[in-house]
Design a protein around this nucleic acid. Structure first.
Lengths: 235, 235
DNA sequence: CACAAAAAATGACATTAATCATATTGTGAG
DNA sequence: CTCACAATATGATTAATGTCATTTTTTGTG
């Protein structure tokens, strides 16, 4: 990690997608002055599960995974963050330790917002609080649906979902086919909740059935309908 | 369902455990006047997944399951509610449909709070909002942990967890051993994320290894340490 | 470019847990 | 009390997926 050059929140393009999008005047200025812009390299840890939060993080640009330690130290990716997403806020709001770790999936710019500053903001800005409540609600909904899917769907379907969620979060490359992230088999497995080997095998099955195409470390979505059908429990 | 006799919120013992515990004066009185006390019989549906909420529900007494429809219509229980718990608030805060259905596990008294009333309350009472934020945070944390466990733990461990969570939610009978709920095998399976048959078999395994004892429809916890160990990924 | 190290693919095998079929037990209505 | 029906138990079988071992490929580095 290294401190990045100062970037103004008011002109930050990521802010448009963030909970801070409606921040104005004094509030925005205060955020601007107290935040610290940081630059993380691929693979660097941003914060660690189980530690007490000093603040929260807002992704300016890049790709970050949020993961928990599970059985026998196996990683489970519970969330993917990208431009405009805030991370670690649950720990602050719940007055708790971080319930997951954050790691950069590629070089990323992430701003740090001190805890007291954040608490100030939500205390004085009910609109922001509402945004946060909305965000929490959405994430809770998503998490509950994931519980059901994880418990009931076979790995192949979960893998299809994982690919779609990578696409939703990180988008496509210029060809509008290739998912815009290079991700290791193991990480994909940790997102889908399976093992590296099984992920490998099922990716080839998906390729066989012409849903996707494996191009080096990248994945092309050939037939999104098919993937969607699988993800929603088709066969 | 039938309308129950009026019970004042101010003297409701369940309120102490609820997000409304710090409500006073006008706010409390308004809540009191607009809520409707209802009485549900075991098996009755309180609200339905996918429908738009007219309000939220607060359990006065009883036991309620919150479940989602999964693959092939299979139920997944995502939450257990008891005295003082609110249900359906996520849908209101997220301006969304209910993401799960609520059904009484036994005869229960549940109060209905109209949506506009609830929105009024959180708009004017930042302390309440804070409570809600806290609750959302806790539920999100719990849900994420459940994703990891569901993805990584074998069914037996998940079953152990389910039993412990039944105990945590509904407590013990006077003998301090028997979990204070009678639950069908199928529901237990839908909580642990498995099938009826597998749940049956694994319960007998747990009995074999002297962790629990099956007494009719009830379950006694003989060795909680062992269960806890299993639930936290022992073998 | 070559080498070491990491990642991925692949095969053999073991295990878990779902599915299907059937038997047994429990329960409430009449 | 008994009949019918629901719930539970149980056995047999199969499919999915994890595990372990080995090979191949890719990647980064001097």
């Amino acid at each position: 990690m290294q401190i990045d050059k100062y970037t103004s929140c008011s002109s930050c393009p990521a802010r448009i997608n963030s909970v801070f999008k409606e921040l104005k005047g004094d509030d925005l200025e205060q955020l601007d002055q107290t935040k610290i812009c940081k630059q993380y390299h691929k693979g660097e840890v941003i914060f660690n599960e189980g530690t007490y939060p000093r603040g929260l993080y807002c992704v300016q640009s890049g790709k970050v995974k949020l993961s928990q330690m599970g059985t026998d130290g196996k990683e489970q990716i519970v969330h993917l963050a990208n431009d405009g997403d805030i991370m670690g806020y649950r720990a602050i709001l719940g007055e708790d330790t971080y319930s997951c770790s954050a790691m950069a999936l590629e070089d990323s710019k992430v701003c740090f917002i001190p805890k007291t500053q954040f608490n100030n903001l939500i205390e004085n800005n009910s609109k922001l609080t509402l945004q946060i409540v909305h965000l929490l609600s959405d994430e809770l909904k998503e998490a509950e649906r994931k519980i059901t899917n994880t418990a009931q769907q076979p790995v192949k379907n979960r893998l299809a979902q994982s690919l779609l969620s990578l696409k939703d979060n990180y988008g496509m490359e210029i060809d509008n086919l290739t998912i815009n992230i290079s991700i290791k088999r193991e990480e994909l497995a940790n997102l889908a909740g399976t093992t590296r080997e099984t992920a490998t095998r099922l990716l080839y099955e998906l390729q066989e059935q012409k849903s996707i195409e494996l191009v080096g470390k990248k994945i092309k979505i050939i037939n999104e309908i098919q993937l969607l059908d699988l993800a929603h429990s088709g066969h």
